[in-house]
């Protein structure tokens, strides 16, 4: 049996919005379109960064390389995405300002988070958050 399940956005009539052409942006849920499901999330708090890099690992246990997003909060209070320098980073020789760089990677067993401490920084702590979404890479 097939059918249609929709919840339209407020102020949009679901029946009107279903008339062709259908705009999926008119709907909170539309059963013709898959949602981007979050399978798991987690965080690593107050992790000490002492090297370049310091690596933190989480076993995800999925048996495949997952679709994931991650974020890292540096001591400057700004939360960075994967692949970013800390907010106040300005790099040039001989002086580098800022804490470092955040990089995340995965295989079919682990998520690994690499935080690079720049040569001028003392050890510092970071908080890391990750989300694992459906559909393997």
């Amino acid at each position: 049996m097939s059918g249609l399940f929709v919840i339209s956005k407020s102020s949009i009539d679901a029946f009107d919005a279903l008339e062709s052409p259908v705009d999926p942006n008119d709907f909170i849920i539309h059963s013709d379109y898959s949602t981007f499901k979050i399978l798991a999330d987690g965080k690593l708090l107050s992790q000490t960064v002492s090297g370049a890099p310091t690596t933190f690992s989480v076993a995800h246990g999925l048996g495949y390389i997952p679709n994931f997003f991650s974020f890292c909060e540096f001591p400057d209070g700004k939360t960075a995405m994967n692949g970013q320098f800390s907010y106040d980073f300005t790099g040039h020789s001989p002086t580098v300002v800022g804490y470092g760089y955040f990089l995340a990677e995965a295989d079919d067993t682990y998520l690994r988070f690499l935080v690079y401490k720049n040569s001028g920084a003392s050890n510092f702590n970071v908080d890391i958050k990750y989300f694992i979404f459906e559909v393997e890479l």
């Binding site: 013709d32 949602t35 979050i38 399978l39 999330d41 459906e134």
Partner: peptide
Amino acid sequence: DPDNLQFSSEYNTL
């Protein structure tokens, strides 16, 4: 299998 579902109330979404 969540990959075979359009929507499931058991999974959070963005």
